[in-house]
Nucleic acid binder design. Structure first.
Length: 263
DNA sequence: ATGGTCGGTGTCCGA
């Protein structure tokens, strides 16, 4: 099974790029984040034509929005909510092959890395804490589960272009990294990409739109992740970070797809 | 040290 995850930053604007990903990489399951479309307006047509007829979506107007698009039938699906909000950041599904998939969009957290003065950063930390408290009872390490998405945190030194410069930049601050570590430890999640690309090799999945030349400056961060339960660790067969997609015409997402082959 | 660019929406907000 080939699974891709991508923060697409508007699925309607970038449907042609999503179809390119599907044509060129032939994933069986695609997890999306920032679809930015209410469920009633989700563009199912072109995806169904290519076999993605099984979908679990949770979308809203303007902001956020997550989806699981699958060629494999779904046995069940859920749209969990966190922090007493229905802001479309989490959707899950159990595939007919028994694998459970979660598509997750963690709050970005704003600019100021202080939860006392920045409500968005407080929300980010609380979101992680709630998931961390929920996971041990919901996700058994001996079951096949995949967690994929934009976690908006680059936890390792080699997940950012400059570790020291980003220590006080939201996405790489010690307090967030510690929270993400607690979430990972709560289930014993295995970081799939780092199984194939161990430190200190750098891996990025996001480059800011604000750089004049993202490729030349290469000031990236690894914000998008695929985690698997220990039950699936042995089944990890390969991975791909589609760096080239950051240059896809005409309008690339600022995130690139991450692909993992399982089993 | 600063500001830089996107998308969706509506004349700003979130990233």
């Amino acid at each position: 099974m080939r699974l891709a995850t991508w923060n697409i930053n508007s699925v309607r604007l970038r449907m042609d790029l999503l179809l390119r990903l599907i044509e060129e990489e032939a994933p069986d399951v695609v997890c999306l984040q920032e679809t930015k479309v209410p469920d009633g307006s989700f563009p199912h047509g072109p995806l169904a034509e290519r076999g993605f007829v099984h979908t679990a979506i949770a979308g809203m107007k303007s902001y956020n929005g997550v989806a699981i698009l699958s060629r494999i039938p779904l046995a069940s699906a859920a749209q969990p909510n966190w922090c007493e909000r229905t802001d479309c950041r989490h959707v899950s599904a159990v595939l007919a092959n028994g694998v459970e998939v979660h598509s997750l969009y963690v709050p970005a957290g704003g600019d100021e890395p202080d939860p006392v003065v920045n409500d968005k950063f407080a929300h980010k930390l609380r979101f992680l804490d709630e998931l961390t408290a929920w996971m041990p009872g919901a996700i058994a390490p001996d079951r096949p589960v995949v967690l994929a998405g934009d976690l908006n945190i680059a936890p390792l030194e080699s997940d950012v272009w400059n570790h020291r410069a980003l220590l006080d930049v939201v996405s790489h601050t010690p307090v967030e990294v510690e929270r993400l570590g607690a979430m990972q430890a709560s289930v014993g999640w295995v970081d799939a990409v780092r199984r194939f690309v161990p430190e200190p090799e750098r891996v990025y999945t996001w480059w800011s739109y604000r750089a004049s030349d993202w490729e030349a400056s290469d000031r990236g961060r690894r914000l998008d992740h695929v985690w698997v339960t220990p039950a699936l660790a042995h089944a990890l067969k390969g991975h791909k970070v589609l760096r080239a997609a950051r240059g896809w015409a005409p309008k690339p997402s600022d995130h690139v797809p991450v692909i993992v082959d399982i089993g």
